[in-house]
Amino acid sequence: MCYSAQIQADYRKYVRTFGSDVSLERFVELFWEKRRDGGWSKLPKAMRAAFRSAASSEDLAIADLVEAGDNEQGAALETELFQQRTRLTVAERTLEAKPTKKAENDKRIATDKIARAQRNLADLQRTDLLDRDSRIFPGHYAPVMVVQDGRRVVIPMRYQCRLPGWTPAMERQKPGTYNARRDNLKKAWRQLYGYKHGIMIVNAFYENVARHRLEQRELAPGEQEENVVLEFRPEPRQDMLVACLWSVTKGGEGEADLYSFAAITDEPPAEVSAAGHDRCIVPIKPERLESWLNPDAKNLAALDAILDDRSRPYYEHRMAA
């Protein structure tokens, strides 16, 4: 399963390459919502940064939202640092006077939280963008291009699809819906396959792999399975148009609608399988884009053919940083 991906987070790439419009209203709703509910960190830094250079009055309003959200996030991290440094000082004084298990735990936890808060604060304040600023995980948001009312439009969506009719409680019982298995599209995903198609631009993806499978060997007697994270990149380097399914759930009173999506995955090519993983994202060919974004639910065979006739780059892998 594609548990993480490095995406094209700048909506302007979609505009320049595909002539798409942008749902600025949805970006505004999302940024306001994540400021309110504490989910600011689920918005990739690169996606927020795209609005820093405002080109219109609408962009300027979003740029102000981004700046305010970043400032609030920074203040929260500064507060966390102060609290944990205080906790660390108290723990160290206690250990000097009379060592206790609680003080040892407090020192360890405070030290870890200080380091994490410092890293997060440095990332927040950094102005140059790194690859990791475009990386998403389940529950994070990414630009997804779809067709609405006959026009291509970019909408920020959550990477974990809430299927039609699901409640938040039902969603929590099945947390793996950030991927839609190819062999299940006409079953679990039948309400979306043939109806709501999109693409996400991806230039790398990440997978959890068992070390012994990566090394193409059996576990040794008594050896515990160890997980490693691999980064897969197409060679030559390129942006891939990853096939997605999406849904929109009406928000409750005072809540914004939830746009969410899943990446379609299929059996892996030989090089991904040899690296120890059994799934792979499905990048569609550019010439198939129009047909994919305008599906005919009465002709699923044509959609199957698009997924069969996919782009097939060679995926190089390495241990993820």
Rank of each mutant, 00 (worst) to 15 (best):
W246G: 09
K187D: 14
S311A: 06
D70E: 05
D128Q: 10
S53E: 02
K187W: 01
K113N: 11
A204C: 00
L258R: 02
R237A: 15
P99C: 11
L60Q: 09
G39S: 06
P44S: 02
R26C: 08
E96H: 00
L258W: 04
L43D: 02
L192F: 08
E223I: 08
K113C: 14
N227S: 11
K196L: 05
K187M: 04
H212T: 01
P313Y: 09
A321S: 15
P269E: 13
A270G: 03
E96N: 02
L77S: 12
L124K: 02
N120E: 15
A302Q: 12
R135T: 14
S247D: 09
V202M: 02
S273G: 08
S20V: 13
Q224V: 00
I62W: 00
R288Y: 06
L241W: 12
D296Q: 08
A5P: 07
K98E: 15
E253W: 14
S260I: 11
R217T: 15
D70H: 04
R318C: 05
R93V: 15
P143H: 13
A320T: 07
Y315Q: 08
P44V: 06
C280V: 13
H197E: 01
E316R: 12
E218F: 03
N208W: 01
Y206T: 02
A142T: 14
T265V: 14
G198N: 00
Y11I: 13
D21Q: 07
I281E: 02
M319Y: 14
E316N: 03
A46M: 00
D37F: 01
G176Q: 01
A262W: 07
P286D: 14
Q6W: 03
L303M: 12
K250S: 09
V90S: 06
S134Q: 10
A305R: 15
V272E: 01
A54W: 04
D106K: 11
R12G: 13
A256Q: 09
E29L: 11
N203V: 00
G74F: 04
L24F: 15
D309N: 13
R237P: 08
E253R: 12
L121T: 10
Q83R: 03
A61E: 02
A297E: 13
A61D: 05
Q83M: 03
D59Y: 02
L43R: 01
R85K: 06
V248G: 04
V248H: 06
S4D: 08
E215G: 07
P99V: 10
F27A: 04
L77D: 03
Y11N: 13
M145C: 08
V146M: 12
A97S: 14
Q191C: 00
C2P: 10
V242H: 00
L214N: 10
A275M: 07
S57D: 07
Q73A: 10
D21L: 09
F205D: 09
V228L: 11
K101R: 12
I136R: 06
I199M: 01
S20D: 14
D70I: 01
R119F: 15
D112K: 11
M47F: 01
R190F: 04
I201M: 07
A301F: 07
F205Y: 03
N184R: 04
R126Q: 13
N105Y: 15
K285R: 15
D128N: 14
L30T: 05
V28W: 06
L60G: 00
G165K: 04
E231D: 05
V66P: 05
D304Q: 05
L121A: 09
L214C: 12
P268H: 06
E271Y: 05
K174N: 15
